[in-house]
């Protein structure tokens, strides 16, 4: 692979990875505000009206923006029992199919989420709470997250086809 191509590949991947890493801090922030809610309820007898919904919105942003990073790190949970047993040639083919399916599925979800965001904004759809958060704010991260997920998968597919070689041989196993 020529060096100038490597550079843009690296830029895209590190951007996606950085977006994911920054997003993960949202979870820490959520944990702290939920604890604050407990304290506020018990020590000051004044439950908040914003913590629950803000937390859910934060969770939506964090989670969808982390999806592509999961794949970049080969952390997506998959069953490798049979794909591990086949030869290298077949592994490349299976991985190519996998990336193609991921790219396709992500493109579909990203597009539908974008449409839903626009619809929600047009109709004025909002949550039924004190905050009345517009629904497009919930759909936007879905659209962005799956778009980046699509970009990452498409990139992997292109590199796989161009080189005929798998870039990362080890899957990072992940289970609770």
């Amino acid at each position: 692979m020529p060096p100038q191509e490597k550079k843009w590949v690296g830029t895209i991947e590190s951007t996606i990875m950085r977006i994911g890493e920054y997003s993960s801090w949202i979870y820490l922030f959520i944990g702290i505000i939920v604890a604050y809610e407990v304290a506020s309820r018990y020590f000051f007898n004044s439950p908040t009206d914003w913590v629950e919904e803000t937390s859910r919105l934060g969770m939506v942003w964090a989670t969808f923006l982390l999806f592509p990073a999961c794949m970049g790190r080969r952390q997506l949970i998959s069953i490798t029992l049979f794909s591990d047993a086949v030869g290298e040639r077949a592994k490349v083919v299976l991985e190519g199919i996998s990336f193609a399916i991921i790219a396709l599925a992500c493109a579909v979800v990203s597009f539908e989420a974008l449409v839903a965001a626009i619809d929600a904004a047009t109709v004025g759809r909002a949550t039924a709470s004190v905050l009345r958060i517009p629904y497009w704010l919930f759909y936007l991260p879905v659209a962005i997250g799956f778009f980046l997920f699509f970009v990452q998968a498409a990139l992997e597919l292109i590199l796989l086809v161009a080189t005929g070689q798998r870039r990362k041989l080890e899957l990072a196993h992940e289970e609770i």
């Binding site: 979870y27 959520i30 944990g31 939920v34 629950e52 937390s55 859910r56 919105l57 969770m59 939506v60 964090a62 989670t63 969808f64 579909v108 979800v109 539908e112 989420a113 449409v115 839903a116 919930f138 759909y139 879905v142 659209a143 799956f146």
Partner: peptide, 20 residues
């Protein structure tokens, strides 16, 4: 319905316990 389901699955206060 797919993007709706994706949002509905993640927009969930109970599952918030997982990352924490």
């Amino acid at each position: 319905s797919v993007s709706m389901e994706f949002l509905g699955s993640v927009n969930n206060f109970i599952l918030l316990a997982v990352p924490v």
